[in-house]
Design a protein around this nucleic acid. Structure first.
Length: 202
DNA sequence: ATCAAGATTACCT
DNA sequence: GGTAATCTTGATA
C-alpha cells in the first residue's frame, strides 16, 4: 500500500525544469479515483521550456490551451493530441516561467488490473502486455484514467500526487533528444532510467 | 469558415 | 520500415 503522506512539496516543483525532470525519475505518481489507487514509478520524462524551446506549447505565448504551464510549479498540465490521446505534464518553475515536464513512461505498481482494463478492456494480461501498459505519454494517461478534467489540478492534492523516493544517480540516467517533435529537435532534454524495461523506446 | 499540424499509438509489410 | 485513425488547437481570412 502506497502512503500519501509522503508527497513532494511545492518547493520541489518550483525549480529549473531540467533539474526537476531528472529528479522526477524514480518518483511514484499516484491517482486516487474514489479511493482506488493507481500508481507507477516514473521512468521516462522530457523537459519543455517555452522561453527558448520551439517545441514547447508555451513558446507562442499564453493561450487557453497552455495557460496552466504559465502558473507556478506543482500543477498538472493535461492536453489532448492527435484527436485521441491525452498527455500529462508536471508544471515547474516560478509563475510565467512556462516550463513543464512531460511524463513519458511509468513502471506500473498499484492497480495494475484497473490499468489493464483501462488500456485493453480486460484484467488478465500477458507479461508482454504489462510492459506495454504505461510505456508512452498517451498510454500512461489512458491507464491511469487521466483526461482534460484533471488539467490544472494541484499535485499536492488528494486526487493526483507524486511521492518522494530516492534520487536516481546521474550515471543511471540516459540523456537523449526528445521524441515526436519537429522543432528544437537538437535539445538533449529526454531523460530515462537506463536498463528499465518500461521506457517507451531506446 | 477553413485549414494544417500535432510532445501518439496501433497495426501493417 | 510505413501509415491511418481522429479532432483540437491556433492561425489566417
Amino acid at each position: 500500500m502506497i502512503l500519501s503522506n509522503n508527497k513532494l512539496p511545492v518547493k520541489f516543483y518550483k525549480r529549473n525544469v531540467i533539474i526537476v525532470a531528472k529528479e522526477l525519475l524514480g518518483k511514484i505518481i499516484a491517482v486516487n479515483k474514489k479511493g482506488k489507487i493507481l500508481s507507477g514509478r516514473i521512468v521516462e520524462v522530457e523537459a519543455y521550456d517555452g522561453s527558448i524551446d520551439q517545441a514547447a506549447h508555451t513558446y507562442i505565448g499564453k493561450t487557453k490551451r497552455n495557460e496552466v504551464m504559465f502558473e507556478s510549479g506543482g500543477l498538472l498540465y493535461v492536453y489532448f493530441t492527435y484527436g485521441m490521446y491525452y498527455c500529462s505534464n508536471v508544471v515547474t518553475g516560478k509563475e510565467n516561467e512556462r516550463t513543464a515536464v512531460l511524463l513519458r513512461a511509468l513502471e506500473p505498481i498499484e492497480g495494475i488490473d484497473t490499468m489493464a482494463f483501462n488500456r485493453f478492456g480486460k484484467i488478465e494480461i500477458s507479461e508482454k502486455q504489462k510492459l506495454n501498459l504505461t510505456n508512452g505519454p498517451g498510454k500512461l494517461c489512458m491507464a491511469l484514467g487521466i483526461d482534460k478534467s484533471q488539467n490544472g489540478i494541484s499535485l499536492i492534492g488528494d486526487e493526483i500526487y507524486i511521492l518522494k523516493n530516492k534520487k536516481i544517480p546521474e550515471e543511471k540516467i540516459a540523456v537523449t533528444t526528445r521524441i515526436g517533435i519537429s522543432k528544437s529537435k537538437e535539445l538533449p532534454w529526454r531523460f530515462y532510467i537506463k536498463e528499465n524495461p518500461y521506457i517507451s523506446r531506446k
